[in-house]
Design a protein around this nucleic acid. Structure first.
Length: 429
RNA sequence: GGAGGAAUGGCCGAGUGGUUUAAGGCGGCGGUCUUGAAAACCGUUGUUGGGGAAACUCAACCGGGGGUUCGAAUCCCUCUUCCUCCGCCA
């Protein structure tokens, strides 16, 4: 949710920066709804003040044993006028709140303007794709051939866009989760959290998935519960309606499965496990001081990059354009890993600073003691994948495939798997 | 699933319809005293929104929502969470 005062003050400038992200009519409507609401609120508060005053008079009169019939009648009459006005306030309030939740965040000034991914900027490239003496295969060929990935049986259990990992495949997934969590907790200073994998509507409002993107989520029938599309939801909402008293930043990490309906992505990434209804992810979340949140975004992105580098996976870092960023983000870096089987770079992590956009919705504050008086201010929230486990699994199979059909295990993972490679028969040795 | 009980400021806790304009305590902050500190004493201390250059002022907030009333922390309805007990259960 945008800061209303900022919107009032800088209306034209913000409108320009939201070009391509928000319908300009929506912004006009928003400011008008706000004016209507403020006028109605001012009027009703004045009536309430009068009622309060008369009530005090009545109390005094009753105490003195006097008759207060006139005052009561007058207060009743004012009360009725206030009641009529209350409808106006409520409808203006609803309209304004409804609009507020549909306006996306304003891009940071360093974000390239553009209407889609074609305007994204490559900011860094790390490692270089290996040369292969054979034609590298895609993971959807390697995995089933090794007997460690099974789509047909997953379809029996659930349906399309689900996968079963078997044997070395399942163990590799688990090793990656442990490796990610160990690095982030022991070396990058994050606190591990194991949150619920189910969240309510209010939490999803807080992080911005609702109300606009309900179609992308799985809802549990007959309840107000949804399967989480990312650990960002439970982690960011962990401190909803709270004022953080300790030092900033607060850094959290969690492993969770993620569930996405992928409505509207029919025909995209249909092969393999690039785009699934369920995938595993280790998420990084920070609650940061507004003055340092962009430095925190750099270090959070570096924490995710560190994993890719330790695994020796070539990647590039993209700065997303204003049109390609998500609804709540002010700035986003995507990390894209090289997949030789597919012959392209594919997103494996998305790291964003939401500034106070989520904090305003979820009411997450911190105590700012820098001024003459301590004051509760909204924190800046950030998150990023550190990393998407399934896509890392894919990257390892494709980057480390061998001429004999087996897969080498990256050195950093060997102690986790107690093995150096997966044989062409799918065994860990 | 059943039966009871509870939810008040950063924390503890009083408050069953009208100077509650939320007592009192703890903690925090400032001060007096002291070489310094402690103790003692005095003062101060919530959030959100409106108006104002400011001093200040008005409104709302006692788990959430709704209602009764001239007036609600207090009465009624409803939801949520926690506690105790019973049942079931990994």
């Amino acid at each position: 949710m945008l800061d209303l005062n900022r919107l009032r003050r800088d209306f034209d400038a913000l409108k320009q920066r939201l070009e391509g992200r928000a319908d300009p009519a929506l912004l006009d409507e928003f400011v008008r709804a706000d004016e209507r609401r403020r006028a109605a609120v001012a009027e009703i508060e004045e009536l309430k003040r009068q009622v309060n005053e008369i009530s005090a008079q009545v109390a005094r009169a009753k105490k003195a044993g006097e008759d207060a019939g006139d005052a009561i009648a007058k207060s009743k009459e004012i009360g009725q006028r206030a009641k009529a006005l209350e409808e106006d306030v409520k409808s203006a309030d609803d309209a304004q709140h409804d609009l507020a939740t549909r306006i996306p965040n304003v891009p940071h000034e360093s974000v390239p303007a553009g209407k889609d991914e074609s305007a994204n900027i490559e900011t860094r490239r790390w490692g270089s794709p290996k040369e292969y003496s054979f034609v590298p295969q895609a993971h959807w060929d390697i995995g089933p051939r090794l007997g460690i990935l099974d789509f047909e049986r997953a379809a029996k259990i659930t349906g399309s866009r689900f996968a079963v990992y078997m044997g070395a495949g399942a163990k590799l997934e688990r090793a990656l989760i442990n490796f990610f969590l160990d690095v982030h907790t022991s070396e990058h200073g994050y606190t591990e959290v194991l949150p619920p994998f189910v969240a309510n509507s209010n939490a999803l409002m807080g992080t911005g998935q609702l109300p606009k993107f309900a179609d992308d989520l799985f809802k549990l029938e007959g309840t107000d519960y949804w399967l989480i599309p990312t650990a960002e939801v439970p982690l960011t909402n962990l401190y909803a309606d709270e004022t953080l008293e300790g030092e900033l930043p607060v850094k959290l990490t969690a492993y969770t499965p993620c569930f996405r309906s992928e409505a509207g992505s029919y025909g995209r990434d249909v092969r393999g496990i690039i785009r699934q209804h369920q995938f595993q992810k280790v998420e990084l979340v920070k609650f940061a001081h507004p003055e340092t949140s962009y430095e925190e975004l750099e270090s959070l992105t570096a924490d995710a990059e560190d994993i890719l580098q330790r695994l020796g996976l070539p990647y590039r870092k993209m700065t997303l354009s204003s049109g390609d960023m998500g609804f709540s983000a002010a700035k986003t870096y995507d990390l894209e890993v090289w997949l030789p089987g597919l012959g392209e770079y594919k997103e494996i992590s998305s790291c964003s600073n939401f500034e106070d956009f989520q904090a305003r919705r979820a009411k997450i504050r911190f105590r700012d003691n820098s001024g003459p008086k301590p004051k509760a201010r909204l924190v800046h929230t950030l998150n990023g994948s550190g990393l998407a486990v399934g896509r890392t699994w894919v990257a390892i199979l494709e980057n480390y495939q061998q001429a004999d059909g087996g897969v080498e295990i990256p050195v950093a993972l060997r102690t986790y798997l107690n093995a150096e490679r997966i044989t062409p028969e799918g065994a860990l040795v």
